[in-house]
Design a protein around this nucleic acid. Sequence first.
DNA 1: CCTATTCCATACGCTAGCGTATTGACATTT
DNA 2: AAATGTCAATACGCTAGCGTATGGAATAGG
Lengths: 189, 189
Amino acid sequence: MNEVVKKKSLTADDWQDAALNVIAHQGVKAVAVEPLARALGVTKGSFYWHFSNRMDLVEKSLAKWRLSDKKLIEESILTIKNPKKQLLAWFKLSAEPIQSHLIYSTLLADRSHTIISKILKEITLERLAYLQKSYRDLGYDAKQAKSQSLLAYSVYVGFLHMSKTLYGSLPDSAKAEEYAQFVAKQLLA
Amino acid sequence: MNEVVKKKSLTADDWQDAALNVIAHQGVKAVAVEPLARALGVTKGSFYWHFSNRMDLVEKSLAKWRLSDKKLIEESILTIKNPKKQLLAWFKLSAEPIQSHLIYSTLLADRSHTIISKILKEITLERLAYLQKSYRDLGYDAKQAKSQSLLAYSVYVGFLHMSKTLYGSLPDSAKAEEYAQFVAKQLLA
DNA sequence: CCTATTCCATACGCTAGCGTATTGACATTT
DNA sequence: AAATGTCAATACGCTAGCGTATGGAATAGG
């Protein structure tokens, strides 16, 4: 009997996780109350007990995503003290097909709501600031660091989309490491 | 009386142009028959005379887009014989905020339908092939050309999204040229 | 001038999804 | 045991959009 005990009732967190999963794969527009309820094996009576409306769920889900992403960065990147190694770790992490990246990439094109645009802009600027600082730590001057970080982040975003678009046509995981090295070499010259 | 004479009736082309405009700014999902009809000052009675259904319009619109994009490339890029200058022209063109780029970038995240994924993959592979050949013409060996073209195209895609996301926070047009030079220098080293 | 074709309006039925209101089943507390 | 609180089912009204069916105006060809 290794089965997980079936939960008796859902928490707001369960709804948010489900929503994030949908956002990662189908985008914000695909977050619909009734289909989500069906997927969770309940009806929307449950949903409207936990959330006031659809966008409420979206906002809270994205807030959760931001927190977990921040935590991930702090634990797996910022703990590395050597500036070059830290940036390398960032590049490597950014190439891994984790949910956080998928969410970010769907937000990029799902900017229907003002709230989403706002969140997206904030996160992007945060990350750019991080990269810029990293390049400064590597010895780049202010101007160079600015251009270089913008370039590096463009590569990140671009590669995210390429992965989804060309699924099956990109370098396989065996060669992925090789490509990552190549990119790092180009962007850390 | 410089006004354009009001057209008496719409053509399929008019519908496609309107659809492409919506796709460029709101994505494929936002292409809806009735709102589009309203925008064109007619009812959907007109639409269903020209097209069999919604996806029919989307497909034909995207086909038109592909053709016009191909024509643009042939006329403004492929006419340049010097390999390096040609690639430079490609980079420059890819940074201009024309409708074609906007359409491409929304497709990247709007891959709900199989048809769209298919078109997107085809176009992306076409463009990658072009870049790869260009780098080979510049003297890169096969392996280098492959990695470098993937990197360059990622920058293109990434910058597309950055432009939309950070509208107002990116280098202004005065500095855009400068940044383009920087990117070209990094990618044509 | 009359007929056929082209283009569009109107009216209809249908589905998916949002949000509300009400009731009910358990569980927890008292 | 009774009361309260937690979570969910059901039923309802409402809107937006899809696709169909049919009729009608305008125009072009004969």
